[in-house]
């Protein structure tokens, strides 16, 4: 298509909007854009929108909330292990270290990437995308679109630690011998994951391709 042939970054790149085409975000049908205020998709009947309404405001708010909750998610314990002798609190990072010391370094690496790297990367990447959409920066559009797709793809993997903690808390309830209590860090962490997932979905990728004002 014409869009693919145009060099990225060159001003005057043909976009769907400039060609009068509109993609239905629901069923991916391409529709010729009649400038009606309440147009519906001829295939799936979803409301067609040139851009998601208030995309930047909503995404920005969710992103700030996620960034704020990222602090308690990493500082507060995700679980307390109570045994006869003592109580041990684990944050996400100390959980990774426990795995590392017990010699399971591939698992430790997996948890480190899913729980520490991915959430941080998501918040930073969405921040970068938000700023470039807000400034309508015409540079590196292709790479930024790829970054957005990466964020969408990896987002779900941060749930890994929540599942691990919830199974540990269910299994380790052995009368007075040992029990695992879920901490508020897990709650904050879950909130970060959900907020960033929703933020990625409310962000309108097409804003990255809007021409500078």
């Amino acid at each position: 298509m014409a869009m693919d042939r145009t060099e990225p970054g060159v001003s005057g790149t043909a976009t769907g909007r400039s060609l009068g085409l509109l993609v239905c975000l629901n069923c991916r049908a391409t529709v010729r854009n009649v400038k009606a205020p309440h147009m519906r998709c001829p295939r799936c009947d979803a409301r067609l929108r040139e851009r998601k309404p208030h995309s930047l405001a909503v995404t920005g708010a969710l992103l700030v909330a996620a960034a704020v909750l990222y602090v308690p998610a990493n500082v507060l314990p995700v679980m307390d292990t109570r045994t006869f002798f003592d109580t041990e609190s684990d944050t996400i990072m100390s959980g990774v270290l426990v795995l590392l010391h017990s010699g399971d370094w591939p698992i430790a690496l997996l948890v480190f990437i899913a729980s520490i790297v991915v959430p941080l990367l998501k918040i930073l990447a969405l921040g970068v995308l938000w700023v470039s959409a807000w400034r309508r920066s015409p540079r590196h559009r292709q790479q930024r679109s790829e970054l957005y797709r990466l964020v969408e793809f990896i987002g779900r993997w941060s749930m890994l630690d929540i599942y691990a903690v919830s199974l540990l808390a269910t299994l380790v309830q052995i009368q007075s011998f040992a029990s695992i209590i879920v901490g508020w860090g897990a709650w904050a962490f879950g909130a970060v994951v959900v907020l960033t997932l929703i933020a990625a979905r409310t962000f309108d990728e097409r804003l990255l391709w809007d021409p500078p004002q």
Partner: peptide
């Protein structure tokens, strides 16, 4: 898009590795 079975599976493996110690 909220169906995370594959993530759960890996999370379960992580929990089992920790318990197996």
């Amino acid at each position: 898009s909220w169906s995370f079975i594959e993530v759960f599976m890996l999370g379960a493996l992580v929990a089992l590795v920790r318990l197996s110690n």
